[in-house]
Amino acid sequence: MLPEGDRRPGVGLRADGVPDIVWHAIPGGEVRLEIEAKGLWKRLCGRPSFRVEPFHIARYPVTVAQWRPFVAAPDGYDALVRQPLGWDPAPQRGHDNQPATLLTWIEAMAYCRWLSGLLGYPVRLPTEWEWQQAASGGEPANDYPWGDWQEGRANTYESRLGRLTAVGLHPAGQSAQGVLDLAGNVWEWCLNESEAPKKVAEGGDARRVVRGGSWIYVRDFARCAYRHHVHPGARFDDVGFRMWCDSPIF
């Protein structure tokens, strides 16, 4: 809220007006989801496991300042959402350095397509197993990005703030790779369906996974492995998103 704005890297825009995304490298590994497998798979293997290749993830969720150019660009929201679907974007109630919220999974996907064109390399939503790998820092034993629960490291219900905050205000809660806000503040959209995690294609009404908990929910919802789901066309004031990429061009 300083007069000159929040100048931290990864919060706002570059000098050319393109969203400034700071990427962190995440190691590969094996991720097990907290979902009950069925039939023969359950008897043989238990919870479904996914192999994760190394990737990069954004330091913060997309902020209000970074969402706004997408809404204003003729090739952004108007071309990718308003014209095909007849929707209008929900007003952003937060400050520029707070996560963009009140946006659907469909709108988040459209944002990723738009930004891919500006950056010159593809970005997308992470799958939930990629998100979990980033949140745990590649250490499956970590219940939270820093390990076991500790007060003051996340904006969950326990913080008693009772509201959304700017990104990155809990540096002690960062992951081993330096990624922030993976616990609390806002839920984050993931690419895949909830009931059929391997399905990542667009289309249909299947609920999509959100991860990370939010300022409204108690700490258990902010665990690295906790799964929640939301209809892809729903908007909530505690749901945002962050982005994945394979190998960013610096």
Rank of each mutant, 00 (worst) to 15 (best):
residue 207 R to D: 04
residue 161 L to V: 12
residue 34 E to C: 05
residue 32 R to V: 09
residue 109 M to Q: 15
residue 138 G to K: 13
residue 74 P to A: 01
residue 214 S to C: 14
residue 195 E to I: 08
residue 49 S to F: 06
residue 75 D to V: 02
residue 205 D to F: 13
residue 58 A to L: 01
residue 105 W to A: 11
residue 23 W to T: 12
residue 174 Q to F: 00
residue 65 A to G: 09
residue 124 R to A: 11
residue 180 L to W: 09
residue 52 V to E: 01
residue 88 D to N: 07
residue 112 C to M: 03
residue 132 Q to F: 13
residue 173 G to Q: 04
residue 237 D to R: 06
residue 177 Q to I: 06
residue 79 A to T: 14
residue 53 E to W: 03
residue 203 G to Q: 09
residue 191 L to N: 11
residue 14 R to K: 15
residue 238 D to G: 08
residue 71 V to L: 09
residue 46 G to D: 15
residue 87 W to Q: 10
residue 238 D to Y: 08
residue 237 D to P: 04
residue 29 G to K: 09
residue 39 G to F: 01
residue 56 H to C: 13
residue 164 L to D: 05
residue 146 W to I: 10
residue 40 L to Y: 07
residue 189 W to H: 06
residue 169 L to W: 10
residue 234 A to P: 00
residue 71 V to Y: 07
residue 145 P to R: 10
residue 139 E to A: 10
residue 225 A to E: 09
residue 55 F to P: 13
residue 16 D to G: 08
residue 24 H to V: 10
residue 205 D to L: 10
residue 33 L to S: 14
residue 124 R to D: 13
residue 39 G to Y: 08
residue 129 W to R: 05
residue 175 S to I: 10
residue 80 L to W: 12
residue 126 P to F: 10
residue 8 R to P: 08
residue 113 R to C: 01
residue 224 C to I: 02
residue 250 F to I: 06
residue 40 L to N: 07
residue 144 Y to A: 03
residue 45 C to M: 05
residue 127 T to M: 00
residue 172 A to V: 15
residue 234 A to N: 12
residue 214 S to L: 10
residue 195 E to S: 13
residue 57 I to R: 04
residue 241 F to K: 01
residue 239 V to M: 03
residue 220 D to R: 03
residue 43 R to K: 07
residue 140 P to I: 00
residue 183 A to N: 11
residue 232 P to K: 04
residue 132 Q to V: 10
residue 138 G to L: 11
residue 154 A to E: 14
residue 243 M to D: 07
residue 158 E to W: 08
residue 163 R to N: 02
residue 167 V to W: 03
residue 131 W to C: 04
residue 92 Q to E: 07
residue 115 L to P: 01
residue 46 G to R: 00
residue 200 V to T: 15
residue 48 P to R: 09
residue 214 S to H: 11
residue 204 G to Q: 03
residue 17 G to N: 04
residue 52 V to R: 04
residue 202 E to T: 03
residue 199 K to E: 14
residue 243 M to E: 05
residue 115 L to D: 12
residue 146 W to K: 12
residue 161 L to I: 05
residue 104 T to F: 02
residue 140 P to L: 01
residue 50 F to K: 10
residue 124 R to I: 03
residue 17 G to F: 04
residue 5 G to P: 08
residue 49 S to M: 12
residue 83 Q to C: 08
residue 91 P to R: 06
residue 48 P to E: 08
residue 177 Q to Y: 05
residue 147 G to A: 08
residue 245 C to F: 12
residue 226 Y to H: 11
residue 40 L to V: 06
residue 186 V to H: 00
residue 36 E to S: 02
residue 225 A to W: 00
